[in-house]
């Protein structure tokens, strides 16, 4: 009997303790970090609808991709499907942000300077060198070694291109006697060149992509030419040639302008479409307008016995945009 009573007391105590036990979960709920808000089933439904539509768009993308063949892809439909899917998920998230998430406005401190720590950092650095007697010398030597290592590591970059050697920029494939050919390697006859038009020519058997290759050829009235005395023979029958590459920034002189208003524009002119540098073919390629600083290099021409156009030598100056130390005339 006594034993039973003891059991009952023990059981009662356990039950009492269990009833009074701490409820960590409840306690956490009682003191929330995130403020509570009221449920909104309408907004939840809206989110579900938006996500559902997004799924349909994603499926539409996959079906479009699978259904259509190469070359017949409806790019617009693909864009609408993928963009639409993303935009509907974005809309669902916007609803979550506006109506399903508690709007909290909390406060925080901007960080202030840590004066004690600043002082301590400085102290650590200063006190760490107590065994060094010649700090400056050691620091200097360290810096020098670092610099030397840096230089050594940078040296291989010199393989990228020639160092302090700009001779490649001067090279041109034109030699005395080189025939002028068109894009399909067909040689130009002097008679092919008609007045009022403009022809692109290249040196025979040369790489047409070299800046020094392409030239423009036009036929002008021989009486109207104003060339320097040493170039008097460079334009037989008034056929005259210049490098096609603008001396300003290296675009090709793709426009040939007929004078539309003779008072301001007395001659036909070469125009670069990039920055509108304009050159006068009758006056040795002089710059008549725009930012270019050098005249277009002129190529001397010859007409051989067969009536074909040949170069009479190299250009009058370096081809293409200028660089530090480039000469404004005279070629090799």
């Amino acid at each position: 009997m006594r034993r039973l009573r003891r059991w009952l007391v023990a059981f009662g105590a356990l039950l009492f303790g269990w009833l009074l036990r701490r409820k960590p979960d409840d306690e956490r709920e009682r003191d929330p970090i995130v403020a509570e808000g009221s449920p909104e089933r309408g907004a939840e439904n809206l989110v579900l609808v938006l996500l559902g539509i997004a799924i349909l768009f994603a499926a539409g993308f996959i079906v479009t991709y699978a259904e259509y063949g190469v070359g017949r892809m409806p790019n617009e439909l693909l864009g609408i499907c993928l963009g639409g899917c993303l935009l509907f998920i974005a809309a669902a998230l916007a609803v979550v942000a506006k109506r399903l998430v508690v709007t909290e406005e909390l406060e925080d401190e901007y960080p202030q300077p840590h004066e004690q720590e600043q002082e301590e950092v400085a102290k650590i650095v200063r006190e760490s060198g107590s065994r060094l007697t010649r700090k400056r010398l050691l620091l200097g030597a360290g810096a020098a070694a670092g610099g030397a290592l840096g230089l050594a590591l940078l040296t291989p970059a010199a393989s990228l291109g020639p160092v302090w050697y700009t001779a490649p920029l001067d090279r041109s494939p034109w030699r005395r006697g080189t025939r002028l050919v068109d894009e399909n390697e067909r040689p130009y006859l002097a008679d092919d060149i008609e007045g009022g038009s403009f022809y692109t020519a290249f040196p025979e058997h040369a790489n047409k992509e070299d800046l020094g290759s392409s030239i423009v050829v036009v036929r002008l009235n021989p009486g109207g030419l104003q060339l320097p005395p040493d170039r008097a023979s460079w334009a037989p029958q008034g056929i005259i040639a210049y490098s096609k590459i603008c001396t300003h920034a290296g675009c090709s002189i793709a426009l040939y302008r007929k004078p539309t208003f003779p008072v301001l524009e007395p001659h036909d002119a070469f125009v670069c479409p990039c920055h509108y540098s304009t050159f006068d073919p009758a006056r040795a390629g002089a710059v008549i307008y725009g930012p270019a600083g050098r005249p277009l290099p002129q190529l001397p021409l010859l007409i051989d016995d067969a009536g074909m156009l040949r170069a009479g030598g190299n250009f009058s100056g370096p081809v293409g945009p200028s660089w530090w130390g480039v000469r404004d005339s005279k070629a090799d």
């Binding site: 790019n75 617009e76 439909l77 693909l78 864009g79 609408i80 993928l82 963009g83 639409g84 899917c85 993303l86 935009l87 998920i89 974005a90 809309a91 998230l93 916007a94 979550v96 942000a97 399903l100 998430v101 508690v102 709007t103 909290e104």
Partner: peptide, 22 residues
């Protein structure tokens, strides 16, 4: 608070760019 806003903006930007691309 900020997470759904930023995600919505991100997916909105993506979506708009794919619409433009299409």
């Amino acid at each position: 608070g900020q997470t759904p806003r930023s995600l919505a903006l991100m997916l909105g930007v993506f979506g708009l760019l794919f619409l433009l691309g299409g």
